[in-house]
């Protein structure tokens, strides 16, 4: 009961704060693919893997006072920031959440931009395809982002690093 809420709070206890909803969506997706027990269901959307379930659960955590959401108007869009509260940490204390890999994985994730995480998450979404087909698919579904070969290569390195770390600490 409320395990999925507790799992997300464990993520926020590690992250302390996250700036940007897109960044959050892609981070949780990548961690899920790495085998962490996030159960939010993802589908492919215009901007890559997206979970409506996660969006709704975030609203619940904010409404419960476990997370603080602040908005900043960036003229052409609004940016959201999420910060864990003391009540959120109290809630988390009631659960035995086991995610030993999270600190190491988050260390790799935290410096990455939303654009980069979108690329990596999209590549992971097509992970059942051969590598060259993954790259082709990225160009098909995201022609306007104009990802360079360097970025794609960096994303492969990042994915390898994440997967290795996830396996290593299992």
């Amino acid at each position: 009961m409320l395990t999925n809420h507790a799992n997300l709070m464990r993520f926020f206890a590690e992250a302390k704060e996250i700036t940007g909803r897109k960044k959050l969506q892609k981070m949780i997706y990548i961690l899920q693919v790495c085998g962490l027990p996030f159960e939010e269901k993802y589908q492919f959307h215009f901007y890559g893997p997206y979970s409506e379930e996660l969006s709704l659960r975030m609203e619940e955590l904010c409404n419960l006072g476990f997370l603080l959401e602040t908005k900043e108007d960036k003229s052409n869009f609004i940016q959201y920031e999420y910060r864990v509260t003391a009540e959120g940490l109290n809630f988390l204390e009631q659960f035995a959440v086991d995610m030993p890999q999270l600190p190491d994985l988050f260390t790799i994730l935290k410096g990455k931009s939303a654009r980069f995480l979108e690329l990596a998450a999209t590549m992971l979404y097509f992970r059942d395809l051969p590598k060259n087909e993954v790259e082709e698919k990225v160009q098909v579904v995201k022609p306007k982002q104009n990802y360079t070969q360097d970025e794609v290569q960096e994303a492969w390195t990042f994915i390898d690093q994440m997967m290795t770390k996830a396996k290593g600490t299992h």
């Binding site: 409320l2 999925n4 809420h5 940007g20 909803r21 897109k22 969506q25 269901k41 959307h45 215009f46 901007y47 997206y50 979970s51 409506e52 379930e53 969006s55 709704l56 659960r57 609203e59 619940e60 869009f77 609004i78 940016q79 959201y80």
Partner: peptide, 18 residues
């Protein structure tokens, strides 16, 4: 919880989510 049934509300997509 309401998130157990992720029916989608309209989202303005302010940060390129949808």
């Amino acid at each position: 919880s309401s998130s157990d049934l992720p029916y989608d509300f309209y989202r303005p997509g302010e940060e390129e989510e949808r």
